[in-house]
Write a protein that binds this DNA or RNA. Sequence first.
DNA 1: CTGAAAGCGCTTACAG
DNA 2: CTGAAAGCGCTTACAG
Lengths: 328, 328
Amino acid sequence: MSDVARQAGVSRATASYVLNRTPGARIPEQTRAKVLAAAEALRYVPHVSARSLRRGRSDLVVGHVDGTSILGDRLPFFGLVQVASEVRKAGYTFLIHGDPTVSGLAAARAWLALRPAAVVATLDRFTEESVAMLAGAGTVPVALGRRSSELTATVVLDDGELGRAAAGRLADRGRRRVAVLGSHEDRASDPVLGNRIAEALATARHRGLEARYVPMRPEVDAAARVVAEWRRGWMPDGVVGPTDRHAGLLLGALTDAGIAVPGRVAVVGMDDDPFCDLLRPRLTSVRADLTGGDTPLAGVVLAAIEGRWDPGDAVRRFPAHVVVRDSA
Amino acid sequence: MSDVARQAGVSRATASYVLNRTPGARIPEQTRAKVLAAAEALRYVPHVSARSLRRGRSDLVVGHVDGTSILGDRLPFFGLVQVASEVRKAGYTFLIHGDPTVSGLAAARAWLALRPAAVVATLDRFTEESVAMLAGAGTVPVALGRRSSELTATVVLDDGELGRAAAGRLADRGRRRVAVLGSHEDRASDPVLGNRIAEALATARHRGLEARYVPMRPEVDAAARVVAEWRRGWMPDGVVGPTDRHAGLLLGALTDAGIAVPGRVAVVGMDDDPFCDLLRPRLTSVRADLTGGDTPLAGVVLAAIEGRWDPGDAVRRFPAHVVVRDSA
DNA sequence: CTGAAAGCGCTTACAG
DNA sequence: CTGAAAGCGCTTACAG
C-alpha cells in the first residue's frame, strides 16, 4: 500500500481511505482516481493479516467439515456450500478447515490461531469449554446440528420432512405394513438419521399403518440378513430407507430373494442420490429443497455470525418432495 | 503473549523463544517451564496473522476445489484430502477455499490476500498471468492436473492405469469387441477422463480386441439411445465405463433391453463407487490405490510447496486393481 | 481534505 | 542468558 500511495503521490492514509471506501472520508474524485489507477497498475492486493491485526477482528469465517461427512452425509455438506456462498456475498472470506482429527479444545485452538470472526462447524465438534474459549477470544461459534443445543447458537437442520414424505408415499400407495430402516440397534441413538426415522415412523402410524423400526447397518450382508429374517416371519409391504444406500441395499437383497418390487414390497429412499436412476427397479426417493423454507439457511447462519442470533429462528425445516421412479 | 511473559516473569522475547522452540536460543529449563505453565494457564493461542506479518511468510497452504469437483470427480478430492493431511503433518495450516466462481487472476487475488506459503489447485484455475502474480508475491503455485503443464509445478494424477485394468479384465474374460464410453463427442477433449479412455482403448487393441470409442453423456436417456443404436448394428460384448456412473447407466439400459449381463455383454466401471454393490448384476469396477505408487502423492506436493520441486517426479501413477463382482 | 503517528501481536538481530 | 527495540502492512483518531 505504501507503493500505491507513493505512486499516486498521496499519503498512505489517503490510499487506505480510497481503497477501503471508508465512510466519512471525502476524497476528491481526482485523488481517488489516481489511487485506484496506481493500485491497478501495481496489482495491489491488501494483506488480510495486517488488516485484521490492526482492526482487531478479521473477516474470516472458518467452516469445519471432514471428508467423511462430505461423502457420507450430504445435508451438512450441501448446507455448508450454500452457507459459504452467502457468507462470501456478505463480504467475509470463507475457508474450510477439513482436519477430521480435531474437535473440542484442540479444534478451538486451531481455529483461534486464525482469529476468525466466526466458525461454523457441526455441533459435535464443540464442547462447553471450547465454546467459552472461542467466545472469550471474540470468535462467534455457530453450530450446525440435527437438534438444538444449549451449547451455542445452533442452526438445526431438521430433515424430518423427508421421513414424512417417504412414509406418506407408501401410505398413498396403499401399503399397510411399513419397515423403517436405520443404522443403529437403538433408533434414538442415531444423531444423523434420527429425525428422518422418527418422522417416518410417526407418519406411518398416524396414517393408520403398522410401522416397525428395523436395524440394518448400511452394509451388503446386513440387507440379506434382514430379508432372510422377514421371509421367516413378519414381512412388510413397504420399506423406508433413511438414505438411498439403505434403500438400495435392501432393494438388491429383495431382488436376490425373488421378491417383487414394488409388487410385493415397495421401497423408498431418501436424498435422491444420482444412483437411484441406475438401480432396477429405479429407486423412488425423496429430496429436500435446501433453498426452500421460511428463511434460507444461509441467512440464519449469517445472522448468528453477526450477533443477530434469534433462537426462535434456529430450526430450519426443508420442504421435501417425492421423486417417483419405479420402486414405490 | 505479553500476558504470558508477564505472568511468567520474563520478557516477551524469552516467551517467544520458548513457545517457538527457537533453535539456538538456550533457555534454562526452569524458565522454560514457567513460560509453558503460564501459556497453559492463560490458554495462549498464537496469533498467526501477527506471526506471518512479522516473518514475511505464512505457514498457510490454501487448497482450492469446488463442490462439483468434490462430488463429481473423486480423484482430485481424495488426492486433496490426502495432501491436506500430509501438509498438516509437515507443520502447515491447510485450508480449503471452495469458491467455484473464481479462477485465473481473480482467484490469485483471493488467495494472495491471505499471503499463503503455497496454493494447491486444479490446473484449470491457473493462468500464465496468475502464476506470475503469485510467484511475484512469494506464494508457490502448485497444480493438480491430468497432464503436465509448462505453467507451473503440476502434479499429474495419471489414472490411466484404471483404463488398462478395466480393458484387461474384459480381455481376460475372453471378450472380443469392446466399447469404451466417454462423455464427449471427441474423446481427446475430455480433460478429466481422457487418460482412462485412451488407456482402455490402447490396452484392448494391444490385446488384439476390436475397440471403439462410444460417446455417451452420463445421463439416463443417453444410455438407452446407445443401446438402441447397438441393437441396430455393431454390438460389443464388453463395455468399459470411464466412471461407475457411465457403466451403471449402461448396465441399466442393457437390462431394460433384455440383454444379458455378463452373458452377452460384460460391463466394467471405474472408481469402485459404493453404489456398485447396489446394482443387479453387481457392477465390477476398478479401483485406484492412491496411497500406492513410487512416492506418495502428498510427498510430491510437499516438495513443490517447499521449492524442492523435481519435474521428473511430476507424474503420479496409481496402481489399480479390479474389484470383481457380477457384471464382468 | 491530507499527513504524521500510534499500535495491532508477533519475531529476531542486537546490546547488555 | 535476557531485555529493549524495530518493524512486518495495515487502519484510524487526531492535528494541521
